[in-house]
Structures are given as C-alpha cells and as structure tokens.
Amino acid sequence: MKHIHRFLLLFALLSSSVAFGQITEDPEERRDQGQAPLKSQTPEGNPLPFKDRLRYGGGISALSFNPFSIGVSPVVAYQVTEHFVAGIGAGYTYTNWKNFYGGNLNQYSGRLFGMYEFIPNILPNLYAHVELDQRSFSTSGQLTVAGRTTGSSTATWLGATYSQPIGRLFAANLSFLYNVSYSVNSVNDQVLYGSSPFTIRILFF
C-alpha cells in the first residue's frame, strides 16, 4: 500500500512540473514555425504568468533649450490579452524661465490608459487608445501663471496608437490623441496641455 501512495505522490509531482513548464514556456519558440510570438499565452494556449506579461519603458518629452525644458515619462503596462494592453504612467517636466520671468515651472502627471488592437487582421499593431490624465503645476521664484503659482487639470484623451514591435513585450508607440476635456478658456489647460487639444507622442514600452 505504501508503494502505491509513493507512486501516486511521484505522479502528482511530475504532473505539476509538466504543467508549470507549459505555462512558463518561452513563446518565442513560435518564431521557428514562422509565426509571431504570443504575448499573453504559451504556444500550447496556456496563460503566461503575471510577471511575463509586464511591459516597462517610457520616454523623454518637452526637450528644448530656450527656455531650457525637459520631461520624463515612465510607463508600466500589462498585456491583458493578445490584443489588449492596460497601463499606468507618470510624468515630470521641468522648465527654467529664470532668464524670461525669473523662475521655474514644474509639471507633474499621472495617467491610466488602455490600448485595443481592433482590426489585427487588416491593420496589425494599430490600437484604439483611451487615456485618463491628471496633471498639476507649480512655480518657483518670481514666476506666476495668471497670478497663480499652482494649478491642475484632468484630461480624457481619445485616439490611436501605432505600436511597432521591437521584441515580444517591447515596442515603439506612436500616438495621435485628442483631449476631449480641453477648454481654450482654461489657463490650467493652456499651461499643462499647450494651445491645442491634439498631441503626438512617442513612448517605448
């Protein structure tokens, strides 16, 4: 009877090992078959672990020299399905206005976004893009904006992103977005989003 129990225990352990191996198998093996590597599952159709679906990256924005300005935008995204990506991002932009107005402008942002590849058989890597963006600014020195030293605004961006794959879970993403919440009468919107409700952005993740 003990031998039977040992055999069953050994069989259960081996079965668990095989199942774990299937889940964590590298989907890049599909390249050998002339197929694109899967993003959310193994070649056998099993879901990839959470950590193997995470995408990291970001970009540099608002780079100028007169006045000096530079921004950074880190991003963490998650491959929910083969065609849907959700993520979060943050941003910081520093602008030195000391030679013009005697101060600095600091902008901070946080965002949630979703990207859905809606016609992969016709236009692969083209995603519908929805994003909620919360931003604020603060000034230092003599610089004020319409008499204010702080301000904030929330934007809802709608548009499209073309994602050029560089690896299984990394790509160059070119986005064309429209801020449906934008108001030409809002000083905060003018400062934080510029003079137009449209934006073009490149991020790597």
Rank of each mutant, 00 (worst) to 15 (best):
H3P: 02
H5N: 08
R6T: 13
R6I: 11
L8M: 13
F11Y: 05
A12L: 01
S15T: 07
A19N: 13
A19Y: 14
Q22I: 14
I23G: 08
P27Y: 04
E28H: 03
E28K: 12
E29D: 14
E29I: 15
R30F: 01
R30K: 04
D32P: 02
D32W: 11
D32Q: 12
Q33N: 12
Q33Y: 11
P37V: 04
K39P: 00
S40H: 00
Q41L: 08
T42K: 03
L48P: 01
P49D: 01
P49R: 06
F50Q: 10
F50K: 06
K51L: 15
K51A: 15
D52L: 14
D52H: 08
L54R: 00
L54G: 02
Y56P: 06
Y56M: 15
Y56V: 15
Y56R: 09
G59Q: 02
I60P: 01
A62L: 07
F65S: 15
P67V: 04
P67C: 03
F68S: 10
S69G: 11
I70D: 07
V72N: 13
P74Y: 09
V75C: 09
V76N: 06
V76W: 01
A77L: 06
Q79I: 12
Q79M: 03
V80A: 14
T81L: 08
F84S: 15
F84I: 15
V85M: 11
A86C: 07
G87A: 02
I88R: 00
G89D: 09
A90H: 04
G91L: 05
Y92W: 05
T93Q: 14
T95Q: 10
N96K: 01
N96P: 06
K98P: 01
K98Y: 04
N99W: 08
Y101T: 14
N104V: 13
L105P: 03
N106W: 01
Y108G: 04
L112V: 13
L112M: 08
E117G: 05
F118D: 08
F118Q: 10
P120V: 07
P120K: 02
I122C: 03
P124W: 07
P124M: 11
A128D: 09
V130M: 09
E131P: 00
Q134N: 13
R135V: 03
R135G: 00
S136N: 06
S138T: 12
G141R: 07
V145K: 04
G147M: 10
G147W: 02
G147H: 09
R148H: 07
T149D: 10
S153I: 07
T154N: 05
L158N: 11
T161F: 01
Y162E: 09
Y162F: 02
Q164K: 10
Q164S: 13
P165H: 02
I166F: 13
F170H: 10
F170M: 11
A171E: 09
A171I: 08
N173C: 07
N179L: 02
N179S: 13
N179F: 10
V180L: 00
Y182S: 11
Y182H: 12
S183Y: 00
S183P: 04
S183I: 02
V184T: 13
S186Y: 02
S186F: 02
D189F: 00
V191M: 12
V191G: 06
G194V: 10
S196F: 06
S196D: 10
P197L: 06
I200E: 13
I202G: 14
L203P: 09
F205D: 15
F205R: 14
